[in-house]
Design a binder for these strands. Structure first.
Lengths: 154, 154
DNA sequence: ATAGCTGCAAAGTCTTTGCATGTGT
DNA sequence: ACACATGCAAAGACTTTGCAGCTAT
């Protein structure tokens, strides 16, 4: 679950960004979701509040937020976006496609040891890493899992 | 580095796939490279041997090889392909974009412990995971690194 | 002979961009 | 005011697909 949406206005202003309606709502929508939405999904949600916002503008703002360090992009065939900037990893359900967060601190001890070991053995200068876990989410493991419809865009 | 290209014909025949020129060469090219080439890159290499092969055919065969378990796809904005089916991870140089293999066994002990821990704490049923390391490759860390031209498609 | 492949080109999907208009500061 | 943002639609980049002809078995 996600905490109370912070004041996005301040976050934007603090970076000298203009505070336009579409931009503020894009950030608020992203902050209000922990479903790692696609651009299209963000667009849908933004439009509930500002019906005239275009998909192009959503893309422009998402990219801008990523560039400013206010959001992260989860790479893939369809990019997904994430306003959770705390160190964390992702678990993807191979059945329904849902992505859930895995706390960074939970993984950190092992990940750190792993990094050190790889660096020592290979000579590569590792600055960071990304870990993705795959499997089935609790809902899809449940007995009545057939009722849980697969989906692509949260 | 990669070992001697195995007999691709056998691998294909064993699955009941037809052994066409383009298909065989696509697999051989992939097996002969450890540079995680893009589809376009594979196409370029295939054309050195069979100049009339189309990009569409390369895509079709790459997808088929992936579906048959003879190759893996590295997800991203531009898909990359890999005929190395041994368990392993990838290190991506953030400067030149090169992707180098990190032996699976090297990481396995830590990765396994990590998986167990996450599974225990979250209740997620983890079947597999992917770890990507980022940093600078030896060439890009070298003093004359400016000479190492960034590139996207190996 | 015939199911499966291929080349070609057209169509799809997701994302970016040019431009005239609108809008925060 | 005026630099920056937006809406719209067109263009881009990558990938898939329809179809008629070709080919491995």
């Amino acid at each position: 679950m996600r905490t109370i949406p912070k004041n996005s206005d301040a976050a934007l202003r603090a970076r000298g960004l203009r505070l336009t309606g579409p931009r503020r709502v894009v950030l608020e929508v992203l902050r209000g979701s922990d479903a790692h939405p696609t651009a299209e999904s963000v667009h849908r949600l933004v439009r509930r509040r500002l019906p005239r916002v275009s998909l192009g503008t959503v893309y422009r703002n998402l990219r801008l937020l990523v560039a400013e360090g206010l959001a992260a992009e989860i790479p893939g065939p369809h990019a997904r976006f994430d306003a959770n900037m705390d160190a964390h990893h992702h678990f993807t359900c191979v059945r329904c496609g849902r992505i859930v967060d895995v706390d960074g601190p939970l993984a950190e001890p092992h990940a750190e040891a792993l990094r050190v070991r790889i660096a020592a053995r290979t000579g590569l200068a590792i600055t960071h890493h990304r870990i993705e876990f795959f499997g089935r989410c609790p809902q899809c493991r449940a007995p009545r899992a057939r009722l849980h419809r697969p989906r692509r865009s949260p």
